[in-house]
Simulated assay, not measured.
Amino acid sequence: MGIFKKNPFGHILFLKKWLIRIMGALTHSRYNGFNELQIEGSEILRNLPDKNVLFVSNHQTYFADVVAMFHVFNASLSGREDHIKNIGYLWQPKLNLYYIAAKETMRSGPLARILAYAGAIPVERTWRAKGKTVNRQVKMSDITNIGKALDDGWVITFPQGTTTPWKPIRKGTAHIIRKYQPIVVPIVIDGFRRSFDKKGIRIKKRGILQSMVIKEPLVFDYENEAVESIIEKLEYSIEQHDSFLKVIPESELKAEEDLNEMRRWSYKEKKS
C-alpha cells in the first residue's frame, strides 16, 4: 500500500490505519477490561464479501457502539471466535469500513473530528438539527456518498437515527437498501447505555456485561418489496419493533442487574 494512497473520500489510508491502531489500543479495555463484551456471530462476518455490505443496528451511544464494532469486525476477520482478546488484530485493520453519522455530531469537537477520519460518512438529518425539530429534504450528495462507501466496502448505520430506544426506523435506510441492493446484516447491542454516558466517551459504570449479536443477512426482494415491508423487517431484526416493547417492573430490573453481576463474575472466573 502506497503511503499516500487514498480511499474514495480522500482520506489517506496510511493515516487511517494508524488512527485505528492508536484509538483501538486506547479503547480496548472499555470492552475487555473495565467491562466485558459478549459476542455472537463472528463466523457470519468472515463469510461476507469485501464490499456492498450494510450493517444495521440499534443505537445506544454516539461513539462507543461503532468503536466496539470496529474492534469486533477486525478481531473476527483475524480469526478470533466471538472475542476481542489480544489486540494484534489492530495491526492490519479493515480500512474500507465506514459508518453513517450525523454531520453536526461529527463536527462537535476535536475528538469527533478525529473519529470521523476513521470512516464517518457525515449526513444531514432531515428531522433534527441542533436539538430542534426540522423538516428538510434529503441531500442527494449524502445518498451518493453512502453508495460510494458501499461500492468500496462495509457500511454501518443506525437506522433509527437516535440513541433513544423504540423510535421508528427512518425511511431513508429502506430507500438505500432498494437503490444499492447491499447485503444487509442486523446487529443487536446491549449494555452500552449502562456502561457509558450518552456520547460513549465517559465510563459511567464498570463491570457491565455488554453484548453484540451479529445475525444472518436479511432477505429482500430488492425490485418489488415495499418500503414499509423493508422497515418492518429491519425493526424486527434489530429488536426495535413495538412488539418488543414492554413495561419492566422495578423488581425485574433488579433481577436483571443481579444476573448481570453473576455473569460478570462467572466470566472472569472462566478467563482465569
Rank of each mutant, 00 (worst) to 15 (best):
K51R: 13
L90K: 04
K6W: 05
R194S: 04
P49V: 12
D152P: 06
A149P: 10
V185Q: 08
K171W: 08
L19I: 01
N224P: 00
M69V: 07
E239S: 06
K17V: 01
F55W: 08
G131V: 01
R178S: 08
E252I: 04
G33Y: 14
I100D: 09
L259Y: 00
S42F: 05
A102Q: 02
R194T: 01
F73G: 00
E239L: 04
Q60E: 14
Y31A: 11
I169T: 15
R263I: 05
K271M: 14
G172V: 11
F244K: 03
N35W: 04
I114T: 11
W154D: 11
N224Q: 06
P159G: 15
P93H: 14
K179M: 07
A226S: 13
I39L: 09
I214F: 03
N86P: 05
F4T: 12
N7R: 07
R206S: 07
S195A: 14
N96E: 08
Y180C: 07
D152S: 14
R170Q: 15
P49K: 14
L95H: 12
R21Y: 01
H83F: 07
A226K: 14
K6L: 08
I238H: 12
T162G: 10
P249H: 00
A226V: 05
V138S: 09
P159V: 15
K179V: 02
Q210M: 09
T105M: 15
D190G: 07
K132A: 02
E250R: 00
F14C: 04
N7Q: 08
L234Y: 09
H175P: 06
P110D: 05
F220H: 13
V138D: 01
L15F: 06
A25Q: 01
L115T: 07
I84W: 05
T164H: 13
I177H: 13
I189W: 06
M140L: 13
Q210P: 01
Q210V: 00
K94V: 11
I146M: 06
V155R: 15
F196V: 00
I146V: 14
P249K: 03
K268Y: 09
I114K: 15
W127Q: 13
M262Q: 09
I84V: 07
G88Q: 13
N47C: 07
I230Y: 11
V56T: 12
L95R: 12
D151E: 10
Y99F: 15
V155Q: 15
W166Y: 15
T126Q: 10
L19W: 01
M140C: 04
K16H: 03
Y222V: 02
I189K: 14
R193N: 10
F73M: 09
Y117A: 15
F9C: 12
L26N: 02
R202T: 08
F63M: 02
P122V: 06
F196K: 04
N35H: 09
A118V: 03
V53W: 12
K204I: 02
I22P: 03
I3M: 10
V134S: 09
T163E: 14
A120L: 14
T133S: 10
K51C: 12
T27L: 01
W265M: 11
R30D: 04
T164L: 14
A68V: 03
W127A: 12
G41Q: 08
F4H: 11
E232V: 01
